[in-house]
Amino acid sequence: MRYGLFFGDSITYGEYDGVFGGWVDILKRYALQKYNEGSHELILFNLGIGGETTDGLVKRIPHEMAARNAAEGNIVFISYGANDLAIKEDIQMVHPEKFAANILTAIQEAKKYSDDIYLVSILPFSNNVDGVVVASGKLRTNNEVLVYNQILKKITAENSLHYVDFHSAFLDDKEILLSADGVHPNEKGYGMMAEIAIPIIEKYL
């Protein structure tokens, strides 16, 4: 038996998807179906918390990893940035340098329990919220998404990790894959994310 641990914010949690429950929940059902058909057992934990930044991740990842450690190994997905890069009351929630340091700290913790670590790209934002202060008071830009995704790519390369590029998959069709808030995917978007991620978890089934 292996565990798959998905750390992230509301997009990991599956917010705004009343149909499938988000991409991680789709993967959970898929892994269970495969197990029932005779594949290896892979238990997936959705550890997404709405609004969380990497500051929250570094506080909880040591405890979360220690509490869920499978004998046959663990797969870890780290999916952050949409809140980190947001500006609220003229202050960026987590600056790029701190974001990079937090991700590296989380990786060090994950490596104590796992050889399979995936960094997940930040999705693009809809044109109608790009550079706009929304109801939550947060301002996000697609330019910042590129900056933070570049950090994730660099860390992936330098630490021999894996990168899951949802950003490229969404870019051309983001207006039909994102929900009305322009930040979270809709059920179609979450479905596409799951389609991209299924071949990854297939390797462990």
Rank of each mutant, 00 (worst) to 15 (best):
M65S: 08
M65I: 11
A66Q: 13
A70D: 02
E72G: 08
I75Y: 01
V76L: 03
V76M: 00
F77L: 13
I78E: 06
S79N: 09
A82L: 14
A82T: 14
N83L: 00
D84H: 05
L85M: 15
A86I: 00
I87T: 14
I87G: 12
K88W: 11
D90A: 13
I91V: 15
I91A: 14
Q92L: 14
Q92R: 15
E97T: 13
K98C: 05
F99C: 04
A100N: 12
A100S: 15
A101D: 14
N102C: 01
I103T: 00
I103M: 06
L104D: 12
T105P: 03
T105A: 11
A106G: 06
A106R: 01
I107K: 00
Q108G: 12
Q108K: 12
Q108E: 12
Q108I: 02
E109I: 07
A110I: 04
K112R: 15
D116L: 04
Y118L: 11
S121L: 03
P124Y: 01
S126Y: 05
N127Q: 10
V129E: 09
V129A: 12
A135K: 13
G137Y: 10
K138Q: 12
L139S: 10
L139E: 13
L139M: 13
V145P: 03
V147R: 06
Q150I: 01
Q150N: 09
I151L: 06
K154D: 12
I155T: 08
I155W: 04
T156H: 03
A157L: 15
A157N: 15
E158S: 12
E158W: 07
N159R: 11
S160F: 09
S160V: 10
S160I: 10
S160M: 09
L161F: 07
H162A: 13
V164C: 06
V164T: 01
H167R: 13
S168C: 08
F170M: 06
D172L: 15
D173P: 10
K174W: 02
L178T: 01
L178H: 02
A180T: 14
A180C: 11
G182S: 06
H184N: 06
H184M: 04
H184R: 03
H184Y: 05
E187G: 10
E187K: 13
K188D: 09
K188N: 09
G189Y: 05
Y190L: 05
G191C: 08
G191F: 08
M193T: 07
E195R: 14
I196T: 00
A197Y: 07
I198Q: 13
I198N: 09
